[in-house]
Amino acid sequence: MNTTDDCERARMALMASIDGESDAPRDEHFSTCASCQLWLKDLQSMTRQLQGLPYPDARVDLWMAVEGQIRHAEERRSLPRALWPVLGIVFAWRTLQLFFDLPLPALHPLLPLAAGLAILWRLAGDPLAIQTSAPELEN
């Protein structure tokens, strides 16, 4: 059976009605079109079949992988966060020095270099650590 533009319009309206998105259409075309009536029967049957179709068992447990990724990201973010109070104190001290005669804190010249290395070490991971697992085998 051939479908026409009228069929297409009527079917779209029927579909929206079956989906509960609009009121039942008042379309004269439908009552006279055998093809659309058959189409509606098929749609209703398909809707019944699919309703409540259970998902196949995916057999996955992603929690460990997800947790690992989240904790790794949190660790990487926690160090810069911990530096904020130190930076705040230094900034406040330097600001106060503009108004008051405060002593310059005695810092060893190598201290900034050591701090930089410590941050790099933390962010990039321990380069001397021995890898005890083979990721490709774990998968």
Binding site: P56, A58, D61, E74
Partner: peptide, 20 residues
């Protein structure tokens, strides 16, 4: 509030559906 373990509830509840 930073409780990573609480996220397990969401992963375990939705992972099968999300995988499909």
């Amino acid at each position: 509030t930073g409780n990573v373990d609480a996220f397990r509830h969401l992963v375990e509840r939705y992972q099968a559906r999300a995988m499909v």
